[in-house]
Computed example of a mutant assay.
Amino acid sequence: MNLLSKLTFLPPYNQVNHHYQFQWSSSGFQFAFLGKSITLQISSHHTLYGPVILAVFIEDELYQKIDLKEGSHTYFLSFAKPEIMHVKIIQITELQYGFFALEDIQTDGEISKLDKPSKSILWVGDSLSAGYGLEADTTPLVFNTHFEDCTHAYPYLVSNALNTLPIIIAYSGNGIISRWIPESEEKPNTEDILPTIFPYDISENPSWVIINLGTNDASYTRGILEREQRFQELYIHFIMKLKIKFPNAKFLLCYGLMEESLLSSVQKVALETSSLFLRFNTATEKDGFCFASHPNKTSHLNAAHTLINFIRTYNEESL
Rank of each mutant, 00 (worst) to 15 (best):
M258W: 15
G131E: 07
S274K: 13
K268M: 06
F31V: 03
M240P: 00
N144Y: 09
L307H: 06
R230D: 12
P166I: 00
T47P: 05
G28W: 06
F147G: 08
S26A: 15
N302I: 04
K286S: 10
H45T: 12
E204D: 15
L4Y: 02
Q15M: 14
L157M: 04
N281P: 10
R230A: 11
V124W: 02
F99K: 05
K116C: 11
S26K: 03
R222P: 12
I42Q: 07
F291P: 12
L225A: 13
E61R: 12
V56K: 02
R227G: 09
R312M: 13
G109V: 03
Q23R: 13
I308C: 11
E61H: 10
Q232G: 03
G109T: 01
S265V: 01
S5V: 04
H19M: 13
S26H: 13
L141N: 13
Q23W: 02
D192L: 09
W208L: 01
N302T: 14
L263P: 01
V52I: 10
K268V: 00
E285R: 09
P155M: 07
S207H: 10
P295M: 06
R179M: 10
Q229G: 03
S184W: 08
S72F: 07
K297C: 09
F76T: 12
A170K: 08
D126C: 00
E185H: 14
F33V: 00
F246D: 15
F22S: 06
F251Y: 15
A32D: 15
T284E: 06
E186P: 00
K119P: 01
N281V: 02
E59K: 11
G173V: 03
P140N: 11
S43M: 10
K245G: 10
E94F: 00
Y132L: 03
L128V: 02
G173T: 03
E226M: 12
Y49W: 07
A55I: 00
F29A: 08
